[in-house]
Design a protein around this nucleic acid. Structure first.
Length: 270
DNA sequence: GCAGGGAGGCGTCATTATTA
DNA sequence: TAATAATGACGCCTCCCTGC
């Protein structure tokens, strides 16, 4: 079976170095080699073991198990509704720009103008808050008013924006409102200007950029670790259920074998 | 109530796998 | 091949159970 091929060995020796890709092809090729080798009595078991001990992905394992076994749920690429993802996030576009606020929140501006806010401590996309961009009212030339229904915004956030853009607080209405615009006029108090990576000069700016990148990387890895643990739990559940099924099958086969033995071995009456 | 231990989750780092 | 995602390992924390 497939999981026997992988031998559930997730950690390969460090000194071993494989190039990525085509595990299945290599396994199949080795299997063919084994068939021909059996006649010669030579099996390259070491090479086979090396390739088969490659650490698999839980997602890949479970998806392939699912294709083999009907009824086994597949791991979806994105989280399902069990995670409580709002419907608007389900169709979330890929962020093209990610900014960080002074309070640590991350703002992703996707293609099409969709804006999401993510809290670093939040659980994945659950922390994302959908924003809407409007041009209502009479914004200054070149300005876009950003309205968002933040649940915990204090209205005093400062956004780090790459390039020469700034985010200007513009309270118009009940919701906190910001404007992203070029600093053609004098900057209001509290507005933060951030240079683009290409124009960073001072060590302080470089350090801030490095810190931002690190925070972003940690946040992504944090979410990845959560997702990985969720997949691992699902994978273990899948294996446990498969063990139960196979035990039942094994028991039935043993019973069937005993029945056939009784039928095929006539009693000798002397 | 309290100490101790096991289980489970989380964040981070290092490493490996995958993708563009 | 570089960038990114995925995952193992480790340490820490919290919760729950058990024995005293």
């Amino acid at each position: 079976m497939w999981w026997h091929q992988h031998n559930l060995c997730f950690r390969r020796p460090i000194e071993e170095d494989y190039s990525s890709g085509d595990v299945e092809e290599k396994v199949a090729a080795i299997a063919e080699t084994d068939e021909s080798a059996e006649s010669e009595g030579v099996i390259d078991s070491h090479k086979r073991r090396e390739i088969l001990s490659r650490r698999p992905s839980y997602r890949k394992i479970l998806n392939e198990l699912s294709s083999d076994v009907p009824g086994v749920p597949k791991i979806e690429e994105e989280r399902s509704e069990e995670e409580g993802t709002p419907p608007s996030i389900a169709t979330m576009a890929v962020p093209t720009s990610i900014y960080q606020t002074s309070t640590g929140q991350y703002i992703a501006i996707a293609q099409g103008g969709t804006i999401q806010i993510s809290n670093p401590g939040s659980d994945g996309v659950q922390g994302l808050q959908a924003l809407t961009m409007t041009n209502s009212g009479a914004p200054p030339p070149g300005a876009t008013i950003v309205q968002y229904a933040a649940q915990s915004a204090d209205g005093t956030q400062q956004f780090f924006v790459p390039g020469s853009q700034v985010v200007v607080p513009a309270a118009t209405g009940d919701m906190p409102t910001y404007q992203i615009r070029a600093p053609t006029a004098a900057l209001p108090q509290g507005v933060v200007m951030a240079a683009s990576p290409g124009s960073l000069h001072s060590p302080q700016q470089l350090a801030e950029e490095a810190t931002r990148k690190r925070e972003l990387r940690l946040m992504k890895n944090r979410e990845a670790a959560k997702e990985c643990r969720r997949r691992k739990k699902e994978y273990v559940k899948c294996l446990e259920s498969r063990v139960a099924v196979l035990e039942v099958q094994n028991k039935k086969l043993i019973e069937e074998l005993e029945t056939l033995k009784d039928i095929c071995s006539p009693k000798t009456d002397y």
